[in-house]
Design a protein around this nucleic acid. Sequence first.
DNA 1: TTGACCATGTTCAATTGGTGAACGATGATA
DNA 2: TATCATCGTTCACCAATTGAACATGGTCAA
Lengths: 106, 106
Amino acid sequence: MLTDEYRYKILKELQQDPDLSQRELAKRLGISLGKANFCLKALIEKGSIKADNFKNSANKTGYLYLLTPKGIEEKVTLTQRFLQRKIAEYEALEQEIEQLRKEVKT
Amino acid sequence: MLTDEYRYKILKELQQDPDLSQRELAKRLGISLGKANFCLKALIEKGSIKADNFKNSANKTGYLYLLTPKGIEEKVTLTQRFLQRKIAEYEALEQEIEQLRKEVKT
DNA sequence: TTGACCATGTTCAATTGGTGAACGATGATA
DNA sequence: TATCATCGTTCACCAATTGAACATGGTCAA
């Protein structure tokens, strides 16, 4: 349920934007609040993210979701793995597009 | 549940191979038998495919799933739409890969 | 201080989507 | 005829997802 893809995306979003509500995170990833909460908790459970209580200037309670050293390392690994996968997808798409073009001609 | 993607793929497979069992179709699309059955029925219901009873040389009962004129037309439309979508995905992947490469460098 | 907001994280009943074992039907085969 | 294989169909079961509802705590005006 917590796939590599979401692990990667969550770590990426939070690394560049640690003060992100779960609702905003969910919206950016295109998933539900419940799922975002579940995935986030799993990452905290495994020690990739630490949730620091903090008080914002604006009307907020919330946490600061900070990547731990382990989380940073994990993100590097995931990024590389993700890159490999994306390249493979890219090449597969090239062929698929070529085949579709042939079909359109007919 | 019956997405454009599966509509396209089913029409494509059956056009080039009308004597296809639902099990074989499911295997080719990477979906379950139940789902293949559901999608196929929907396409028959909408008049894109006609199921002709036929007797095969090999040990089979089965149907011949033939594209109707409407189904052929639909497949053309779907192919073009699918192509557009794939090109968009392709371009999105280009950018995503580029961004991942930058991240890997860091 | 009090009370009325507002944004946040958390929960969980309900829905959805997908699965594949089981079933009945129908030819082929010995 | 009896057995076997394959077919389409069904549906109880499971997993994943959703988002309304709730509890908490900060802010701000009265």
